Amino acid sequence: MIPLLRNLAADNARPRVTYYNDATGERIELSGSTVLRWVNKAANWLQDEMDAGPGTSVHVDLPADHWRAVYWILATWAVGAVLSDDPDADIRIGLDDPTADLSEPEASLAPSDITSQPDAFTAYVDPAPEDLAVDLGGAQVPYAALLATAPRQTPRVLVTGDLAQTLLTTYARDGSVILLRNEDVDKRAARLLAEGLPLA
């Protein structure tokens, strides 16, 4: 298990993803155990159905503000594959996209094609520190970056930039992320206050 996932497993009851969708009125909290379960299902699909492993490129073609993107990014790293922004990557995960290798539903409660995958995951090949983990527009990050230790703290972070980088830095520090989809900006101040975040 990669260090980011070990952090989630160590305190698996605490919320690790808080997801708002102002178009539907949803507010969903995912605990560490729930995030891990989805990561494991996605990683099993990547490894067993698509033969993904170190060197495989995966394009997570999901909106960065959708909660499903979180577990696909982490699952890509769990199998040692490379997260890529190239739509012609070896594997493409889409949202309501029948042309993708796997298409996730937009609706949070709609069933995913990976639901039947096992809840536990063991990588056939553990990622090596020198393996490339992220290749986004020429910004290449070796897997060693995922193994770096960081001060243990519990930050809550509103995702406003690159989701993969935010997950890396936040979960390495044992934190949690907040995603705002279809945001009603008039609600932001009250929402940040309710979530214990400083006003942006």
Rank of each mutant, 00 (worst) to 15 (best):
L4D: 06
N7I: 02
N7T: 08
A9M: 06
A10V: 00
A13F: 00
T18Y: 03
Y20I: 06
N21F: 01
A23R: 13
L30C: 00
S33I: 00
T34A: 15
T34R: 13
V39T: 14
D48M: 08
D51W: 04
A52P: 07
A52M: 11
G55Y: 07
T56C: 08
S57M: 04
H59A: 14
D61L: 05
D65E: 14
D65N: 15
D65F: 08
W67L: 11
Y71M: 05
Y71T: 11
L74P: 02
T76W: 06
G80K: 10
L83E: 04
D85M: 01
I91C: 05
R92C: 13
I93G: 12
D97V: 08
D97T: 06
D97K: 10
T99K: 11
D101L: 08
D101S: 12
D101N: 15
L102P: 02
E104A: 11
P111S: 09
T115N: 14
A120G: 01
T122M: 06
T122F: 04
A123D: 08
A123P: 05
V125M: 07
A128F: 05
A128G: 10
D131F: 12
D131Q: 08
A133L: 11
D135R: 08
G138S: 13
L146Q: 14
L147S: 06
T154F: 13
V159M: 03
A164M: 04
Q165K: 10
L168E: 06
L168N: 10
T170K: 05
R173I: 01
D174R: 14
G175F: 06
L179P: 03
L180H: 11
L180Q: 09
E183Y: 03
K187W: 00
R191N: 05
R191Y: 03
A194F: 00
G196K: 08
